[in-house]
Design a protein around this nucleic acid. Structure first.
Lengths: 186, 186
DNA sequence: CCGTATATGAACCGATCGGTGCAGTATGGC
DNA sequence: GCCATACTGCACCGATCGGTTCATATACGG
């Protein structure tokens, strides 16, 4: 019961920030929409920035957990790599999909030295490390380069799904990915 | 002389919005930093949103002009496609590089029905159309799919250059692109 | 039963938000 | 010399910004 309110704030703030943006969402709106008083929020987080950082930590944990768990179900490492794009396709089909929270955070806090930007960058780094491990397990001689290439496709697909008119960016990315790792042992 | 002040506003606002973001930049700050009075700005643009739309129109024109002019210098169509990634590398190396203005706009105005989001999407569509033409000229049987794949790489490289720790996302994207169009006649 | 911790609503703070009103100045064509 | 146009500074508007204060209410553990 002790950590419940704090967690509730973070979870609900995540939804609202994701839907409306960081700067566009005021603390008053947040209080009104979550039903949690502003006083309580500022007791758990000294500033809005601290709340945003907590939101990004939660999002990082939830997203990577979801993605790699989803990929692990695909079986052998090479199939896991491909499965990433099937997972993306499902995500894009969600009605509430509005691009990647970390791309948005970096867009709203463009200065690379800003703590929020830096934390968003950290998420991408962790993604890369996990993906590289799978690429190595798949028998790639250059797991670094493979992981970098696959992540390029992932980020491109996300941006295109949010901003473009293409019907299936995840499928397009998957096609390219297949070509990139067709030499790996199944 | 007549259109000079209006253009000056748009050009200077472009720099500032690109550097600091849309919501984070107030009209007062804009007036202070450009040396152009707020009264004048609101005489040329009825709202901040109108100014942002004008900024995006300018950015679209300047960016596509720069990119495709730069690509055209590379010679035959297939080389032009590859040259896109060399152009990106140059752009990323610019000290003022802070991702793509349209990705940022879509991030700050996540609702696809918002005029600003829609205009950002239009930029991506125009990019696609021009790139598809080059792919067709290069002899690709499926210019649509080629253009989509190359644009995925481009968007991914931009995001990674802004948000990631990778030393050369444009080079990584170029390597993948080479594989994607190696079958085309030089 | 008391003390502490947690959460509440509501009023309030100075600053800034997008946007307006007004009076005054500089410039150029006639 | 005159009038229109363009631009200016500056004060002002109501609303909202992030953040604080305070008095109160509820709940739990000793």
């Amino acid at each position: 019961m002790r950590p419940s309110k704090r967690d509730e704030v973070v979870h609900k703030a995540l939804e609202i920030f994701y839907r409306d943006g960081f700067h566009a969402t005021g603390m008053d709106q947040l209080a009104a929409e979550t039903g949690i008083s502003k006083t309580t929020m500022f007791k758990h987080f000294r500033t809005k920035e601290e709340l945003i950082l907590a939101v990004l930590r939660l999002r990082d944990q939830v997203f990577r957990n979801w993605l790699f768990r989803r990929m692990a179900q695909a079986g052998p490492p090479r199939a896991q790599l491909i499965a990433m794009f099937d997972a993306l396709a499902e995500w894009f089909a969600t009605p509430s999909f509005r691009s990647c929270m970390f791309i948005k955070a970096a867009s709203e806090y463009p200065d690379p030295h800003h703590p929020i930007h830096a934390q968003a960058a950290e998420h991408k780094r962790l993604l890369f490390l996990q993906l590289r491990e799978i690429a190595a397990a798949a028998g790639a001689g250059d797991p670094d380069a493979r992981a970098r290439a696959l992540l390029l496709l992932k980020e491109g697909a996300i941006v295109t799904a949010h901003l473009g008119h293409e019907p299936d960016p995840a499928g397009d990315a998957k096609s390219v990915a297949l070509k990139l790792i067709e030499d790996l042992p199944a």
